[in-house]
Nucleic acid binder design. Structure first.
Lengths: 210, 210, 210, 210
DNA sequence: AATGAATGAGATTTCATTCAT
DNA sequence: AATGAATGAAATCTCATTCAT
């Protein structure tokens, strides 16, 4: 039995199964929470035996990692064109906020699952399993946007780490809570309101008026 | 069966033990995460037998509830005088932000534990165990502050729910992530920066300058 | 601390407490079944601390034994005059059957508790805790009655052990099931019907008619 | 969650294992009593891990229910041809009594286990787990036999419920006590003696002789 | 004589994982 | 590539019992 990692490429079946399992895992976590998203529950949703998961993934951690990677990839592919389409820092921030809302609507369960994992899963030595979450994967980009905006004079002076953190918390936290509660909060409208707030808080002429 | 309170008042020993157990539970959760904070681990930290916990608490849920109550109480007692000392809406917002930072520094583990519970713990029927978290206990107050600020003309027009959510996410989420990562981020300085940002985003003359 | 057994006589308080605990134990077992009649439950019903039971009884087994003894004593004191008042074997059998019914009505919980113990409780080595149950305490008497009835020609020839067993099962089992189910079966009427049946099954002229 | 039967049919292995576990459970209960027949003890006897039982049975209740079902089925299959072979009421009663004795000899532990469960096991809400026991499954039949015997004039007038109860107690109770005590009482001979007694107590010409 | 506090053994159940087929 | 079967560790909770006061 050749170890999994040794084989060079994955077959079509394997790729498909892995994707299916990841999706079922995401659904299970989003709907029942991390604690109840056992291997058995995930397998049940996928209509396969538990051991099929073990066959395709080294262990539960690898499944979680794959789920995270999938989400990070999805977020990047989703967000990059949106950011690229904007030229001003102000526009990019607005694109980031509204883009996050749309991403969360489209990939609801996947993103909720990431949160569940981030808050719950621990590696074998107890360290958190997730270092970088989807949104945080773009932290450099976000900080870069703010930095360039300040350089060009478009944005006022502020602590970039703080403002970037605030932007991310506005999405990761507030929006996600809304998602979780299955609330009827209109995420899109919410994002627009947020955009205005950040426009006021960051643009230079505002600071000038101070 | 019979509610604890119905039988009699708590003895000194009991009060002390319960507090100790709650503290050890908070430490365990903050340090190892909810999943690893088993009764055995909590007992180990307290240097007592597992069954001592069962003796003092009906079950794990009651322990969690007591932990939450402790945190909510601590937060309220901590925050109320700070808010009362300010008269302007702007001042109250600043007090809220800096107060949260100080609270989190002082009650670090307790607060992290509340987050763990809020995100993880499920009741017997699978419903989330925690409805209101410490900060959310003050949501009405927060929204009240914003509303009054708008009425007096001190604050510009904005969606109160969005801004209150943003304020809370700025504390609950961003600060907490910092706490969790055991980062050397200076929470106090962070709060000051946040205060400026929110000052700009909310005060009326800013909106006028738009 | 002098071992319990060493002290010669029991104080008034002790006798009273023991009786109270036995009664509460009987109630608990009759109402909730053996498995739920824990020391804690018994103490709760008595309004005392668990350790009070330990103070008055060596261990749970001793409490059970005392309960059994109490029931056996009660049954004997109840039944003896009834049997003594009859002279014929036939009369004694009728007295036994109706007497059992009355005893069970009067000492309902105590007797049900004995059954619970008989069926459930095991000694430290796994042997049944109860060798002789109240009714069985009178087996010799019962067999003696039958034997004398046969000797005097009043009763037909039959296997004495079988008939005695049948008499006891008619009471211990059938009546008790009725008690347990809290049925509205009229135990007294039941006993009368049983008496007729046994009259027919045992008296000599019946056998003659065969 | 999903009922076992809904998923698919049982494999050969599963059927075999379940039967083995049921048998070991019966042995454990018959030999050590309900309280000591823990999952661990049952697994030990079967030479398997505790969790194998959990794998094949939802929980302990399901195992108990399966054991009961097995016994009820065995009793029915055993008794039905015996009763069908007799035409007279008197013959059917004799067949019932001797049949019970043979059944208990053949299925000793299984039947003792049923008794243990009936007397001890409580469902999650404290209600008794077993409503109908093997013998009681045939109560209607028994009462029907007596009723027809009275109608045809073969049997004397008596209270049918009382007599049926007596017949059942004669088997369930008396015989079982004998079984339990591991006595050397010859059950078969016992049954013959019982049959005579009931013949005398029930047949019409006896009543006529009165 | 009584109590509150503490203990350790043991019960049921869940779960990720492994193995033979 | 997939499955059913089995495992052992660990989690929560209950209980009879003991001990210091």
């Amino acid at each position: 039995m050749q170890p999994r990692a040794a084989r060079s490429a994955r077959t079509f079946t394997e790729v498909t199964r892995r994707a299916q399992i990841v999706q079922c895992a995401a659904d299970a976590m989003a709907e029942t929470g991390y604690a109840r998203a056992s291997m058995a529950e995930i397998a049940r949703r996928a209509g396969i035996a538990k051991s099929v998961i073990s066959y395709h993934f080294e262990d539960k951690n690898e499944l979680m990692q794959e789920l995270i990677s999938t989400a990070v990839r999805a977020f990047s592919e989703f967000m990059e064109p949106l950011l690229a389409a904007e030229t001003s820092a102000d526009g990019k921030i607005r694109a980031y906020l509204t883009g996050c809302a749309e991403y969360m609507i489209r990939y609801r369960n996947l993103h909720l699952a990431v949160l569940e994992i981030a808050f719950n899963a621990l590696g074998p030595e107890g360290q958190p399993l997730v270092a970088s979450m989807p949104f945080e994967a773009h932290t450099p980009t976000l900080e870069q946007i703010l930095r360039q905006g300040q350089k060009s004079g478009e944005l006022r002076r502020f602590d970039i780490a703080v403002m970037a953190g605030l932007l991310r918390s506005a999405t990761t936290h507030t929006m996600v809570l809304a998602l979780r509660a299955d609330s009827d909060l209109d995420l899109a409208a919410y994002a627009v309101e947020l955009a205005t707030t950040f426009h006021l808080a960051t643009t230079a002429h505002v600071a000038a008026g101070e």
